[in-house]
Amino acid sequence: MRSIIINILLLVCVVFVSCTEEITMDLKSGEPVLVVDAAFTDEVRDHEVILSVSSEFFSNVPNPPVSGATVILRDEMKQLELDEDAGRPGFYIIPADFRGIYGQVYTLDISGVDIDGDGVVESYSASNVLYEPTKIDKISLSWDVAHGDKNWNVLLYSKDNPDKEDFYAFSVYLNNELISDKISELEYAWDRYFNGNDVNGVSVQQIIEEESDGEETEYHLKEGDWVKLEMQTINKDYYHFIDAVQEETGIQVPLFSGPPANVPGNISNGAKGFFRVYSVDRDSIRVTKEILDLRDE
């Protein structure tokens, strides 16, 4: 919904010749804080908990990792202390055999760190529930040139659960390569506008072949390619987090943007970042000649 509004209003702004240029600015620096970047799903694979420290805004290097912390993941029945990856400091691995059970609350406890360097050891914690996933019935592709760029729309066919308030996020893969690899590239939805309805071919993700300025991207569909849609059943807190991240990383225009603010988080004791817990369903579609005809006509 928001993207529709932004599209309309940005188009109006195009009429007024506005320009953008890079400028240099001096910004104040705040106290460093712990940043937790962690995701846990119902998939059977390794997951990562990445701990780092915040840095000043114009720092041009990766943020310093936090090594040697004690990181424990638990649900109501079991718990596990995570090992740090020897080759990648700051990365703590949740092994594939630590399985996610639907309906359980997953809690991440972090201790044994002293971010503010005052000699006192700190601890942090974050929790989230793993919900059962809503399933994809099937997907299809359509070709879209109406919005200035040229892209494929991935259309979803599914049914929303009428008994629950559901939140979703979507990402897309081309030949098993994740295209929407950032939170700001996810598409996300809240069922308050379509609770319990059939979802019949609604566009939930895109693969852009040519940008609105005419530049071609690295993605160009060929016969035999596989396009995969991943539908994540997430929760309300993560939904608001994605929304805030997209506002904070998107274009800010005086007409439509409010004052910037910190994105919400779910980690205690002043740490930033997000521990997200969600379940996943995927479906794929093979790119056939009929599909390519939509574009090449």
Binding site: L27, S55, F57, N63, V245, P260
Partner: peptide, 14 residues
Amino acid sequence: PNGRMFVGGDIIPL
């Protein structure tokens, strides 16, 4: 912003 963090592949201002 007076700082930044990395989460999920994005640089997010603080």
